[in-house]
Simulated assay, not measured.
Amino acid sequence: MNLSALSNAIDTLNLKSCLISRNGQLVFEHYRNRQSAGQIAKINSCTKSFLSALICIGIDHGLVAAPETSLSEFYPQLTSDQDPRKQEITLAHLLTMSAGFNWSEFGGHNSFPRMTRSPDWVQFVLEQPMSDRPGDRMEYNSGASQLLSAILMQSTGMSTAKFAEIHLFGPLGIEDYKWEQDPQGVHTGGFGLWLRPADMLKFGLLYLQQGNWENKQLISQELLKRSVQPMLDVEAPNRGCYAWHWWTDTYLAPDELSAASFDFYYARGYGGQFIYILPSLDTVVVITDDKRKKDRSPSDVFREFIIPYIL
Rank of each mutant, 00 (worst) to 15 (best):
T69E: 14
N23E: 14
K202R: 15
I55T: 12
C46V: 15
Y31I: 00
F101Y: 15
R296A: 02
G38I: 09
V285E: 04
L71S: 07
H187Q: 14
K16S: 09
A53H: 03
F274E: 04
E29Y: 05
Y265K: 03
N110C: 07
Q221F: 07
I89L: 11
F50T: 12
A236L: 13
W244N: 01
H167K: 04
K48W: 04
F163T: 08
E175N: 14
N102F: 12
S49T: 14
Y140I: 03
R239D: 00
T283I: 07
A243Y: 04
F74I: 01
Q123F: 08
N2C: 02
L126P: 13
F264A: 01
S7T: 07
D255H: 08
R114A: 14
L78I: 05
F264Q: 03
K225M: 07
S104A: 02
E88P: 04
D263H: 15
W244T: 03
H93V: 00
T288N: 10
D11E: 15
E256M: 06
Q25T: 07
S261R: 11
F262D: 10
I275G: 01
F264N: 01
A150L: 05
P171H: 08
Q184C: 09
L91S: 06
S4T: 15
V284W: 10
D289G: 06
D132E: 14
G240F: 02
L206S: 05
H245G: 01
R34M: 10
M130N: 11
L15G: 02
V286L: 12
L3D: 11
Q87E: 14
E235D: 11
Y75I: 03
Q273W: 05
H93M: 09
N215G: 03
E29A: 07
L51M: 09
S258R: 13
L193W: 05
Q229H: 11
N212W: 02
I40M: 10
K291M: 12
A65S: 14
A9E: 13
S142N: 14
A53F: 05
A243M: 09
Q123A: 11
M138Y: 06
R239M: 02
S17Y: 12
S7Q: 15
E222M: 09
R239P: 00
Q221H: 09
Y242L: 00
R303P: 03
G143R: 06
L172Y: 14
L218S: 02
Q87W: 03
Y266E: 03
A267C: 04
N2S: 11
Y266G: 02
D132L: 08
D199W: 05
S17H: 12
D233W: 10
Y75Q: 07
Y265P: 01
N8V: 07
